[in-house]
C-alpha cells in the first residue's frame, strides 16, 4: 500500500507541472506586455520598465520559469491588482464557499445519478427503467446554466421556497446558510446527474451479467444481499473514477453557477479576475483549481486500491 501511494504521488508530479506551465505561458502569451497592462494607459516608460524588472520580464524565459516555479512552490503569488490584497489571503475564503457548494453538488449528483442509473439497470425491461434511461440521456444534454434558470423560475419565483440568489454566510445561521446554497448546488449537481446515471447503469449492467452473480443466486442469497455485497462492490469502481472527473467539471461549472446566483466563490472570483485582467489572481486561482483536482484524484486512486485490492498489484498480476 505504501509503495502504491508512493507510485501515485510520483505520477502526480508531471500532472502538477502541466497547469503551472499553462499559467506561465498564459500570462506571457496574452497580447501586449503584462507590465503595461497591469499599470494601465497612464503609466510612464520608466514605471513599466521598473515593473518589468521587478517581475523579471527582462530575463530569459528559462530563468523566468525557474523563478515562477519557486514562487508557486513557496506560495508567493503576488498582489491582486483589483482587490489590493495579497492573492494568498484572498483565495481561501472564496475557495471555502466553492468547496462547500461543490461537495453538496457532488452529493446531489451521486445520490440522484446513482438512483436513476440503478433503476435504469435493474428495471431495464420495465417502463420505469426505460424512463430512467431516457432521463439519463436528457441529463447529459441539458447544460447546468439552463437548469439553474429553471430552478430559479420554479423554486424561487413560482413557489418562493428559496431566494433568487445571494449568499448567506454560516455566521448568520446554519439553516439560512444552507438555504442559500440549495439552488446553486442543485443546479451544479443536477448538471452531472446524466453523466453519473449513465456510468452507473453501464457498470451495473456489466457486473449483473458476471458469472459470480449466478453463483450467488445458486447459494440462495436474497437479491438485496447480492446487490449490496456482490454487485455494488465492483460496480462502485467506475463511479470512483467519475468522482475524480466530476471534481474538474464542478469547479469549472462553478464559474457559471456562482455568477448566476451571485455566490462569492472561486468561480465568481475567477470571472472578476479575468474581467479586470488581474494576472496574479488568475494565476493563483488556476494554481488552486489545478491542485484541488489533483488532490481529489489522488484520493480517488487511494480509495480505488481500498475497494479493489487487485489494483495495488498492477494490471499484470491478477
Amino acid at each position: 500500500m505504501i509503495w502504491y501511494l508512493f507510485q501515485r504521488l510520483l505520477a502526480l508530479l508531471p500532472t502538477v507541472l502541466v497547469p503551472l506551465v499553462l499559467v506561465f505561458l498564459l500570462i506571457r502569451l496574452a497580447p501586449g506586455d503584462p507590465a503595461s497592462i497591469i499599470l494601465g494607459d497612464q503609466a510612464t516608460q520608466q514605471q513599466i520598465a521598473a515593473l518589468r524588472h521587478q517581475m523579471g520580464l527582462d530575463q530569459s524565459p528559462i530563468v523566468q520559469f525557474g523563478r515562477f516555479l519557486s514562487d508557486m512552490a513557496t506560495l508567493q503569488l503576488g498582489q491582486s491588482s483589483f482587490l489590493q490584497q495579497p492573492v494568498v489571503d484572498v483565495i481561501p475564503s472564496y475557495a471555502a464557499v466553492t468547496i462547500e457548494i461543490s461537495v453538496l453538488a457532488l452529493v446531489w449528483a451521486l445520490v440522484i445519478g446513482i438512483g436513476i442509473g440503478a433503476i435504469a439497470a435493474f428495471r431495464r425491461r420495465h417502463p420505469e427503467g426505460r424512463v430512467a434511461k431516457a432521463l439519463g440521456i436528457l441529463g447529459i444534454s441539458v447544460p447546468n446554466y439552463f437548469l439553474a434558470l429553471v430552478l430559479i423560475i420554479v423554486f424561487a419565483v413560482a413557489v418562493r421556497w428559496f431566494a433568487v440568489g445571494g449568499y448567506v454566510p454560516p455566521a448568520a445561521g446554519l439553516l439560512p446558510h444552507l438555504q442559500s446554497l440549495m439552488l446553486p448546488s442543485l443546479a451544479l449537481g443536477l448538471g452531472e446527474v446524466g453523466f453519473v446515471s449513465r456510468i452507473t447503469r453501464g457498470s451495473l449492467l456489466d457486473v449483473i451479467g458476471e458469472p459470480f452473480v449466478v453463483t450467488a443466486k445458486s447459494l440462495g442469497l436474497r437479491t438485496s444481499r447480492i446487490t449490496t455485497t456482490h454487485i455494488a462492490r465492483l460496480a462502485a469502481l467506475p463511479l470512483l473514477t467519475v468522482i475524480g472527473l466530476l471534481a474538474a467539471s464542478l469547479i469549472s461549472g462553478s464559474v457559471v453557477i456562482e455568477n448566476i446566483f451571485g455566490i462569492p466563490g472561486i468561480g465568481q472570483l475567477m470571472f472578476n479576475a479575468v474581467s479586470n485582467r488581474d494576472y496574479s489572481l488568475i494565476q493563483g486561482i488556476v494554481l488552486f483549481s489545478g491542485t484541488a483536482i489533483i488532490v481529489v484524484n489522488l484520493v480517488v486512486d487511494i480509495l480505488y486500491a481500498v475497494v479493489d485490492p487487485r489494483v495495488q498489484y498492477g494490471a499484470h498480476a491478477r
Binding site: E210, F212, V214, T215, L221, H230, R233, R310
Partner: peptide, 16 residues
C-alpha cells in the same frame, strides 16, 4: 469467474 474477484474467500464461503 464463478467466484467474486474482490470479496475474500472467507466472505464468499460463508454466504450460504
Amino acid at each position: 469467474s464463478a467466484l467474486h474477484p474482490v470479496l475474500p474467500i472467507g466472505v464468499q464461503l460463508t454466504e450460504g
